[in-house]
Write a protein that binds this DNA or RNA. Structure first.
Lengths: 226, 226
DNA sequence: ACAGTTATGCCACTGAGTGGCATAAGCGCG
DNA sequence: CGCGCTTATGCCACTCAGTGGCATAACTGT
């Protein structure tokens, strides 16, 4: 039973009746959460490359071997908050009922629904720390980009499984997903650089704004500077 | 003077009168090119992780230290062909004259112009090898994604420097660039999985098709499967 | 030919990530 | 309650990517 658990979010776990899960699972989730929070804290104060995995594992009182059973790599632990959102997105996509509106709008709705699910008040803070770190850590940014890319591929498979498309090799569904991801990143960047401590509804507002800007991005015209 | 240069592309360098460059520069470019081609060959036959940098450097008869003066990392050397295209894209963007058509179309034109510049007949083969490797090597894919992302940021700065926008924080230029990149990747994926040995004009065709699909990606509607 | 610049080679080192195996913690069952 | 069964964890040794310092060799201009 590792130390450092005290501060390290016993608070977040009971989010939705975790009393159901067996003790072993709960412990696993606790270590995972402790690693995420300690990592975000250490990386934020001393920089991503200023903290070794050994130090992180020491701080959480866990062996490096255990770390790698929970995360794929050093970047992974710091990107976990955003990844949680996309996992929820995939989940929502499975159960969402279409209403005749364009696919792009449906995907936006699904993303909003996923955002609604991120209930813990700790999530907003974690995403903020995570994104600010990613802004100054190329390898983290690359890792996040790749994760989004893989997620959109998975989502594409879900779309093809659940919905009907005229042509199986139509590029438009894939492009619609990429557009969603692009707008999401634009919104996230803007949200992250807001002064003070932005809230979840701020993020929703930035998202709406980015989605609204999408159609214009194909028609916008420009002139040379005078 | 490293060995392995014989097969290793004295052919590509004189592409545009490299007689102008000083000897030292030519040698540097030769080593660089030799590293790229040998890397693509070794990675293709034995897999990305099946080849150590030491082996690669041995094959090209170069010290590991020299490798890292030419490339930022192991993934970098294998993604060089695609990166060359984007460097040309940025260059074309600097000199392109707008003609009143939408920004998105202009960017597509600029990308086509960059593609025209990839003259060496070796380029097509290299991109093909590189992309097929990226398809089965997550870390390469992540690296490529990140490079495109950074490039689009640079391009955004160029746009703001050269052209006039109503609002300085307008999201649409950024989104237009992301759309371009998404369509490019769609086209590249399709081109890469063509049977046989696809040509440069095949790639141009796939690009046109992907660009044409962009507008529809926002309006496409879907139904549940019967 | 000489002096200045710059790429290269060599060497030692840190730190990420992996595999194997013993141990202990949670779990189900009699 | 105590017993095996499953599974997470810890420990150890190892490979390999990537870095820094410093001496040397290779080009450059005069």
């Amino acid at each position: 039973m590792p130390l450092g658990y005290d501060r390290a979010m016993t608070a977040e776990l009971p989010s939705t009746g975790s009393g159901r899960l067996p003790l072993r699972e709960r412990k696993k989730l606790r270590t995972r959460q402790a690693l995420i929070d300690t990592a975000l804290e250490l990386f934020t104060t001393r920089g991503f490359s200023g903290v070794t995995l050994d130090e992180l594992c020491d701080a959480v009182d866990v062996s490096k071997r255990t770390f790698f059973r929970n995360f794929a790599g050093k970047e992974d632990v710091a990107m976990a908050p955003t990844q949680d959102l996309w996992v929820a997105f995939l989940d929502e996509l499975e159960i969402h009922e279409p209403d005749g509106r364009p696919l792009a709008e449906m995907l936006q709705q699904v993303l909003f629904a996923a955002l609604e699910r991120m209930t813990g008040e700790g999530w907003v803070r974690r995403v903020l720390l995570s994104r600010r770190l990613a802004g100054e850590t190329p390898s983290m940014d690359a890792h996040g980009l790749h994760f989004c890319h893989r997620t959109s591929r998975t989502a594409l498979a879900t779309l093809h499984r659940r919905f009907h498309f005229a042509a199986p090799d139509d590029l438009r569904p894939q492009l619609a997903l990429d557009l969603l991801v692009s707008a999401f990143h634009c919104a996230l960047d803007r949200w992250t650089s807001r002064p003070g401590t932005p809230t979840r509804s701020d993020l929703a507002a930035d998202l709406r704004e980015a989605f609204a800007a999408l159609p214009g991005s194909l028609t916008l015209t420009v002139d040379l500077r005078a």
